[in-house]
Amino acid sequence: MNQPATAPCLQHPQEELLRSDRIPHIWCSGCGIGTVFSCVLAAVRKTGLPLDDVAMVSGIGCTGRMAGYIKVDSYHTTHGRAIPFATGLKLARPQGAVLVASGDGDLIAIGGNHFIHAARRNIDMTVICVNNLNYGMTGGQQAPSTPFGAKTTTSPTGSPEEPFDFCQLATACGAVYVSRWTSIHIRRLTESLTKAILKPGFSFVEVLAACPTAFGRRNRMREALDMVKFFHERSVIKNNIDPREFPLDFKGPLVVGEFIDRERPTFTDSYALVHSSQLGEWPDLERQKPAAG
């Protein structure tokens, strides 16, 4: 519509949402984050929200750099602390939509405590986790997502630990929307992100993504396409399931899908309720009748 007549083909389709003056980005060739980032941009557009009312908060790591490329108010904070920063941002300006972009180490290792508490409080935010199974930015170390037996630079003979299942964790902590996809599920991921952003409350979208540079090459998936093919061969979509019954297991089918979509009052709703003098005393909390007159 308003594209310049001279060279319309040179404009990126998401130009309005991209800090194109920051391209080239830092992500390696074959990395899944760029694909996920494109889906995030498409989802933000699909929500129809005014772009001045959307913010992205991130922590540290490869995925955290998303905040530097999206052209909304964006905050690249400290390692693991995106969620508490986003909590303050959202509560101070509740009319804005707040997205958190985080990698697996940032979100669940150093930031794990913040993750479980924001889900418990049901703060209205959308947390997008690109799970590439290791700390990519520092060269491929063991993370709380690293599968048992997988090799990293700090588990050179294989990780001796069991990883967290992030979707189970989010569900147990009270997230109202939980889904898992891989970086090949572009259309479904975009739809899921759109829903998550528009959903009031704590929404969590996990995306399994390839990191050939740091993880793949130590685990017989050296080429960029190796893990993409792995996702293609192994992933099975199951919607509306209890993620506890289908734990993430790389030996068998990789269960992805929209797992949880439920209703629960947000922190802001509950804060208004407890300060409205309508609730009775704990433990029964029977509603008080409005005073006559």
Binding site: R81, I83, T87, G88, L89, L91, A92, R93, G96
Partner: peptide, 13 residues
């Protein structure tokens, strides 16, 4: 850690 981070977010809000 979280309370300090929340202040910064609220201030930018």
């Amino acid at each position: 850690i979280a309370s300090m981070a929340s202040l910064l977010g609220a201030s930018w809000g």
